[in-house]
Design a protein around this nucleic acid. Structure first.
Lengths: 193, 193
DNA sequence: ACCTGAACACCGTTCAAGT
DNA sequence: ACCTGAACACCGTTCAAGT
C-alpha cells in the first residue's frame, strides 16, 4: 500500500530513537514491512546508507521546525521555550530520544557517512541557537555566542538523556527550568539599555 | 600472568566507554585476553552479567572518587571543579565517555540487571551533588536541591557527549564555564548573610 | 578450576535467480 | 522494478568434552 521505502524509513526512525543504530536490524525491518531482509538491501544497499539517510531526513525536518519557530515569534524567550519543547515532544512520544542525540552516543561505532550526518544535526542546532542569541542582542561576539549555543544544546541533550533513562519527563522539565533560572537559557531578549 | 577475570573486565570497560554495550563482543574480548570466546562465559555466564559487573565496579570507583573530593575540600566551588574534572578526564583519555553515560544512551536495549546498575550510577552522582549543594547552604529544600543536582548532572553529561562527538575537549570546558557563569554550577559557597 | 570445539539462532551482506 | 533463498562471516549462548 504505502511506499515501501518510506515505510522502512519510518519504522527505522522509531527503532533508532529507542534502541539506537546497533539495535536496528534489517530482518526486523523486513518483517515489519512484509518483505524479506535481502529486499531491504534493494532500497538501502548497506546499513550505513540507511543510517545516513535517516539522520539526513531527521536533520532536514529539524531545520524546518526551527525555521518555523523563528518565523512564528521574534521573542528569544519564546523561541527557546519552543526549542526545548521539540526535545520534550520526543520524550512525551513513547519516551523516545532525539535520533541524532542517540546516534551521537554511538558515534565511535558509526560508519563515517552516518557520523557526518550526526555532526550536521548538531551544527544546525547550534547555528540556529547562535542566531537566536544574536537576534536577541545578547552580549558577546560571534564566537562567544556560538559557545553559548553549544552549551545550551549540550545541556538540553543531557537533560533528555537523563529523563529518558529515568522514564520521567519531569526530570527534563525541571532541568530546563534550572537552565532558565541560571540564565543559561535566556528568559527573554536583552532590553534595550 | 594477570588475573584473567580482571583482564577481561579492564578490556571490556574501555570498549564500552568507546563503543558502548552493543559494541562489546565476547570474541574480541577473548582474543584480547588470549582465550576462546566460550571461555569468557566461564567468568561471565552472560553478557548481561559482564555488563552489570562493569557498571557496578565503575559506580564503586566513582563513589570513592566523590568521597575523596568531599574529604579533600569543603569548598563547594572547588568540589564541583573537581567533579567536572572527573568527566573531563575520560575525554582526555582517548576521547572516552563515562561508562554509565554511554550505557544510559543504550538504556532501552540493555538487559534489566545492567539498567539497574546504570540507574545506580546516576543516583550516586545526584545524591553526592545534592549533598554538596546542601553543605554549601544553597537555598531550597531537599527536593529542590535534588532537582538542581539532577540538572547539573544532566548538563555535564550532555557536555561530555557533545564534546566527544566533536572530538574537541574545549567544547566540554567551554560548556562547563557557561554552566558556572549562569550559576547552574555554583562558583562558591553561599556567603553567610 | 579452567579451557575448548562444535552447534544453534541471530546479524549484515552478497549474489545468482526469479517475476 | 522489485523480490527471493542460499550462502558467508559475524554475534551470544550452550554443552559435552577435555585437562
Amino acid at each position: 500500500m504505502a511506499d515501501t521505502r518510506q515505510e522502512i524509513l519510518a519504522t527505522a526512525r522509531v527503532v533508532v530513537q529507542k534502541k539506537g543504530y546497533g539495535g536496528l536490524s534489517f530482518r526486523d525491518l523486513a518483517s515489519a514491512t512484509g518483505i524479506k531482509s535481502a529486499s531491504v538491501h534493494y532500497y538501502f544497499p548497506t546499513k550505513a546508507d540507511l543510517g545516513a539517510e535517516l539522520a539526513r531526513c531527521y536533520t532536514e525536518q529539524a531545520q524546518q521546525d526551527l525555521d518555523a519557530i523563528a518565523a512564528a515569534t521574534t521573542s528569544c524567550g519564546e523561541r527557546l521555550r519552543r526549542y526545548a519543547a521539540l526535545f520534550r515532544k520526543a520524550l512525551a512520544d513513547e519516551n523516545r530520544m532525539c535520533l541524532c542525540g542517540m546516534l551521537a552516543a554511538e558515534f565511535d561505532s558509526l560508519p563515517k557517512p552516518v557520523r557526518a550526518e550526526v555532526s550536521a544535526f548538531a551544527d544546525v542546532n547550534i547555528k540556529w541557537l547562535t542566531r537566536v542569541l544574536a537576534d536577541a542582542g545578547m552580549a558577546g561576539g560571534r564566537n562567544a555566542l556560538n559557545r553559548w549555543a553549544s552549551s545550551i544544546y549540550a545541556a538540553i541533550s543531557g537533560a533528555q538523556l537523563l529523563a529518558r533513562g529515568r522514564g520521567d519527563i519531569k526530570v527534563f522539565d525541571e532541568a530546563v527550568e534550572f537552565y532558565r533560572k541560571g540564565g543559561l537559557i535566556p528568559r527573554t531578549e536583552k532590553r534595550a539599555s
